[in-house]
Amino acid sequence: MTVVEPLSAPMELAFDYTRSLGPTLSRFVTGLANATVVGARASDGRVYVPPLEYDPVTHEPLRDFVEVADRGTVLTWTWTDEPLPGQPLDRPFAWALVQLDGADTGFLHAVAVDSADTMRTGMRVRAQWAQERRGHVRDIEFFLPEDAAGVVPPPQPPVEPIAVMTTPVTMAVQHSASIQETRYLQALKEGRLVGQRCPVCRKVYIPPRGACPVDGVPTEEEVELPDKGIVTTFCIVNVPFLGQRIKPPYVAAYVLLDGADIAFLHLILDCPAEDVRMGMRVEAVWKPREEWEYGLQNVTHFRPTGEPDAGYDSYKEHL
């Protein structure tokens, strides 16, 4: 077998986590929106900032809220030369655990200074409040040395208790196809459908697999498949949904190519939805050659060939 370099592509994942706050964290972020820092006193007498929801010893809900200062002392720190996306500053900065005046615990946040040489444990820092605060830990943009000049945020009307906070989260991932999937995708780019046979059970998979789910070994021998097959089972989509590209009703079906042992999901178009049947013969409709990519989207849909239907016994094992 020729050496195949796996196909690989970057993917950006993003999701806005929307979280209910509960009484304790609601007090904390509502305080932040009002440019104040609220902690909670626990049964050990310590004031926790940010507040814990439950007492670390008695496990009772903590409700003894205490307003602490927005300035305090660095307990420990570290330095970041190359900030990562999403961090509080986009230039080199320090992370620190800051013990705010009135608190007994460290609050993890960024400290904006020009050089690590400026940082020391025990230094005094103060919060730099965001210009617009929304009830989020990032209402504090970062901390500054206590005596540093900073922009004073404009006053903002008091905020009512906040129940929900939203945090957008992003990740960048470089996804690789398996060797087997790479051969399949390369063939699709050339307008061909290529599956592979499991060396143990001899079943033909399209797409081919890094491991046959029956035998746990990679599929190997390539099998060129025709772009014709049958509908094994199908459903008529009547429900509109976000991002739908075809007007309902239309048919989503499992298509079993001639010579394959695994069906894949595709669309059946160019005929009324009510005419689609189990066992119906169908063929691929390809996009124009110049639009071919590494993917099954090169086939826009399948359409009936008009040949006689396949008998139930010929596909009953594939349902």
């Binding site: 420990t76 970041t80 990562l84 961090q87 906070m165 945090t167």
Partner: peptide, 24 residues
């Protein structure tokens, strides 16, 4: 996810804070 993750304190940063506490 409420008070730490939104700041993206990375694993080296958290370990660095821990290491300095022990050193000092």
């Amino acid at each position: 996810p409420y008070v730490l993750a939104p700041l993206y304190p990375d694993s080296l940063a958290v370990a660095g804070l821990q290491a300095r506490l022990g050193i000092e």
